[in-house]
Design a binder for these strands. Structure first.
Length: 470
RNA sequence: GUCCCGUUCGUCUAGAGGCCCAGGACACCAGCCUUUCACGUUGGGAACACGGGUUCGAAUCCCGUACGGGACGCCA
C-alpha cells in the first residue's frame, strides 16, 4: 500500500508556523515511505474562506519546498458527494433526520451546562417517527452513533486513546441547507483521496473519535492517525500574533531562509538522537512518527535565528547576493550598479559569516553600494576623531601605491603597523570606520580589495577631511 | 462542568529498568583564537513536577495529586 498523506488547511487566514510544521511532517512522512503528499483546501465555510488566503497558503508551501504531488483539491467542489454519502447513510439506517432548530439546540446546551452535565444533543429525533416531523422545517442529518461500548483510536503518536461512546452524541453530518459539516466532509474526502495517514494537530484528537464513528458507519477502514502536539508561544499559551511572527511569509520577510525554518520546525517536537542540523534529504531519511513527542513545544526565536545563521553560511554566495540586491533595491542613497554588485558578491564569504538573517546581511553589505558621504555609526565617528586620524593620514599614500589584492594589502598594513610601532588592530579599526562607517565588517584587507583603490582612497580622504578641518 | 492528552536544564530535546549522581543543541557566563565583530574552540552554571507503589535496581512500569494544554457548534 502506498502511503498517502495530506495537509488540509482552511483558507481563512495566514499559513502560520503550526500549519507549516503539520505540512512538513506530512511531506516528510510521505517521502520517507516513498508515498505521496497531497493538499486539500477546506473552503466549505464560504463566508470566511478567501482566495487571498488560499494563495498565501500556496505561496508559503512553495517557499518552504512543500509542494503537493497532485493539484490541490478544493473541498467546496465536493458538496454533492458529501450529501450523497449522508443520503446513503440515511438509507442504510446509520443516520437520521433531526428537526431540532438551532435555537432549541442552544437551549438544550444551556440547560445541560446549568445542570452540570456535558452539553450534548439528547438524541430526541434518533428514534422518533419521521411522521412527527414538524412542517416547514428542513432537517439536518445526524449520525446514528453507537451508544454503548467505546471508540478506540490507535494513534501513531498518542498511542491507544479510547472514549466511552456514551460520552459522544450524534453529530451532524449534513446541515439543514444540505452542506456538509467539517467532520463529515473530512472523512469522505480522506476516504476518497485514499489517504492512508492523517497527520494533524492534536487539537483534532477528540474529533477523531467521531470521525472514526463515521468511517465505521460507512463500513470504511479508517486511516492511521497521528496527532502531533501544538506549538505554543514562549509563554506556553497558544501561539498568536502577540508572540511575534507567526506567519510563514512573515519569516520570509524578516530574512529567514526556508531551509532554516524547516530545520527548526522539524526539530520542534521531533528529535533523532543529537541530530540538530538537517537538510531536506537527511530529514526525509530520518523522519518518522516514532520520534514525535507528545507535549506541546514552545516557539524559540533565538534558536531559529541561530539555525538561520548556520544555513546562511551554507548558502550559495550568488543566491545571497541576489537576496541582498532585492532587499537593498528600495533603499535611498544606494547605487546598485554592476560595480557595487560585484563588490557585494566578492565580499559575500566574509559577509555571510557575520549575519544571522538576510536583513542583517543586506544591512551589513549596504556600505558597499552607498554613495558618499557614507553614514557613520557614532562609535566609528568617535574613533576617527581621535589620534587614529594621523595614522590614517600617513597610511593613505602607502595605499595609493599598493597593489589592491588582499594579500598585498595585508602586507602593507602589517609593515605600516610595524613601522608605527602599533598593533594591527589600532590601524585596522579606524581604517574600517573610514571605509565602512562601522566597526564590524569582513577582514579589512578584503574590504579594501573589494572597494578598489580609487573608492578606498576617496572614502579615506572623506573621513579625514572633517578631522583636519576641526 | 464533562471527556481526552501531556509534564527531563530558561527553551528544543536524548533517554524505551541497570550504560544516567541524566547526554546534545539554543540562550547565558568565562577562557582561548582573532585585525574588530562573528565563526571556531575549551570550560561553567542549569532538569527527571510531587507523593506513593512494583523491582535487587526507575527519568524509564503502575496508581494518585498538582499544574498545563486540547475538545465539547447546523466553525474549521
Amino acid at each position: 500500500m502506498t502511503v498517502r498523506t495530506r495537509f488540509a488547511p482552511s483558507p481563512t487566514g495566514l499559513l502560520h508556523i503550526g500549519g507549516a510544521r503539520t505540512a512538513l511532517f506530512n511531506f516528510l512522512f510521505a517521502r520517507h515511505h516513498g508515498g505521496r503528499f497531497l493538499l486539500r483546501i477546506e473552503d466549505t465555510d464560504r463566508a470566511r474562506s478567501t482566495a487571498e488566503a488560499t494563495s498565501v497558503i500556496l505561496e508559503g508551501l512553495a517557499w518552504l519546498g512543500l509542494e503537493p504531488d497532485e493539484p490541490p483539491l478544493y473541498q467546496s467542489t465536493r458538496a454533492a458527494r458529501h450529501a450523497a454519502v449522508a443520503q446513503a447513510m440515511l438509507e442504510a439506517g446509520t443516520a437520521y433526520r433531526c428537526y431540532c432548530t438551532p435555537a432549541e439546540l442552544q437551549a438544550m446546551r444551556e440547560r445541560a451546562l446549568a445542570q452540570g452535565r456535558p452539553p450534548r444533543y439528547d438524541g430526541s429525533w434518533r428514534d422518533r417517527d419521521p411522521a412527527e416531523a414538524p412542517p416547514g422545517i428542513a432537517p439536518a442529518i445526524r449520525l446514528k452513533a453507537p451508544r454503548e461500548g467505546e471508540t478506540v483510536v490507535s494513534d501513531l503518536v498518542q498511542g491507544e486513546v479510547r472514549v466511552a461512546n456514551a460520552e459522544l452524541d450524534d453529530l451532524i453530518l449534513l446541515r439543514s441547507d444540505a452542506t456538509p459539516t467539517y467532520l463529515h466532509a473530512v472523512v469522505v474526502d480522506d476516504h476518497d483521496m485514499a489517504i492512508t495517514h492523517v497527520i494533524r494537530g492534536d487539537d483534532h484528537l477528540t474529533n477523531t473519535f467521531r470521525q472514526v464513528q463515521i468511517y465505521r458507519a460507512m463500513g470504511w477502514e479508517p486511516p492511521a492517525f497521528a496527532h502531533i502536539p501544538l506549538i505554543h508561544g514562549a509563554d506556553g499559551t497558544k501561539l498568536s500574533k502577540r508572540h511575534g511572527a507567526v506567519s510563514v511569509l512573515e519569516f520570509r520577510e524578516q530574512g529567514y531562509l526556508p531551509e532554516a525554518l524547516c530545520n527548526y520546525l522539524l526539530r520542534l517536537g521531533w528529535g533523532h538522537g543529537d541530530a540538530e542540523i538537517l537538510d531536506r534529504a537527511e530529514a526525509i531519511a530520518l523522519f518518522d512518527l516514532t520520534g514525535v513527542g507528545r507535549a506541546a513545544s514552545r516557539m524559540d526565536y533565538a534558536k531559529l535565528t541561530h539555525l538561520n545563521a548556520v544555513w546562511l553560511r551554507r548558502a550559495e554566495d550568488a543566491r545571497l547576493t541576489e537576496e541582498v540586491r532585492r532587499r537593498l533595491a528600495p533603499l535611498p542613497h544606494l547605487r546598485l550598479d554592476a560595480a557595487a554588485m560585484a563588490r557585494i558578491a566578492s565580499l559575500m564569504p566574509g559577509l555571510k559569516e557575520r549575519a544571522r538573517t538576510l536583513e542583517e546581511l543586506a544591512d551589513s553589505a549596504s556600505f558597499l553600494a552607498h554613495t558618499l558621504p557614507l553614514p557613520m555609526e557614532e562609535k566609528a565617528r568617535a574613533l576617527l576623531a581621535g589620534p587614529a586620524a594621523g595614522l590614517l593620514a600617513r597610511l593613505a599614500p602607502l595605499l595609493a601605491g599598493a597593489a589592491f589584492t588582499p594579500e598585498a594589502l595585508a602586507a602593507v598594513l602589517h609593515d605600516f603597523a610595524a613601522a608605527e610601532g602599533r598593533k594591527l588592530g589600532e590601524i585596522a579599526q579606524p581604517l574600517r570606520a573610514a571605509l565602512t562607517g562601522r566597526l564590524v565588517s569582513p577582514g579589512i584587507d578584503a574590504v579594501l580589495a573589494a572597494l578598489g583603490r580609487e573608492e578606498s582612497l576617496l572614502r579615506l580622504r572623506a573621513a579625514l577631511v572633517p578631522v583636519a578641518a576641526g
